[in-house]
């Protein structure tokens, strides 16, 4: 263990635990997923950074959205995000989740993903290299340190607005609201 970080460990052990055990849900959408197998396997080895892919959202706390989001995929993304236990961090990978990218005028893609679920960070580029994932992960560490990776809190606070946006894009949702009606905001 790094001795310089000892004070941090003693001050906020849970935060340090979240930082160094990011479990990414293995959710594939768009073309960006092609960068994930090399980054989790021997060539770039994401486990150096404590990032591991896991099979189900119940075991995960990092959500990488890798590429364009069609309307049909948005439904799966919302369900996956809502099933992840808190604290959870979501990172948009590539330019398509940010503003649609090259599909900005498509009839069937979601343009701004952060209108529907909260996003803690973006990795810009088309495609980003696997190294960019690690830049994002180290940046996410500093965000967690400073309590700025608060997407799951924002989701709780503005759940009504997010739900309204989701229903605007998808029509009626077939699952009940995750949080009850009273909002803090």
């Amino acid at each position: 263990m790094d001795r310089n970080q000892l004070i941090k460990w003693l001050k906020a052990p849970a935060k340090m635990g979240h930082k160094y055990s990011l479990h990414a849900v293995y959710f594939c959408t768009g073309c960006g997923i092609i960068e994930v197998p090399p980054s989790i396997t021997a060539r770039w080895d994401a486990e150096r950074f404590g990032v591991l892919p896991v099979a189900t959202p119940r075991q995960a706390n990092l959500f990488l959205i890798t590429g364009y989001v069609s309307v049909k995929t948005l439904r799966a993304i919302i369900r996956t995000y809502e099933q992840m236990p808190e604290p959870k961090y979501s990172v948009g990978f590539g330019s398509c989740p940010i503003n649609g990218g090259m599909y900005w005028d498509s009839y069937n893609t979601i343009k701004h993903l952060d209108k529907y679920i909260p996003i803690d960070g973006w990795i810009a580029g088309c495609m980003p290299r696997p190294e960019a994932i690690f830049v994002a992960v180290t940046h996410l560490w500093t965000l967690i340190d400073k309590d700025m990776a608060d997407g799951y809190k924002r989701y709780r606070d503005h759940y009504q607005a997010y739900r309204a946006n989701q229903e605007h894009a998808l029509g009626k949702l077939e699952w009940p609201p995750l949080f009850s009606n009273e909002t803090k905001s």
Binding site: Y107, K111, D114, R154
Partner: peptide
């Protein structure tokens, strides 16, 4: 139907997706 030539994708996007507001601080 969206693949017909007279389907205006940009108008559709600006009518359907652009009015959806951003949430929260942003």
């Amino acid at each position: 139907p969206p693949f017909r030539k007279d389907f205006d994708t940009r108008k559709y996007v600006s009518d359907v997706f652009d009015p959806i507001p951003f949430v929260g601080k942003k």
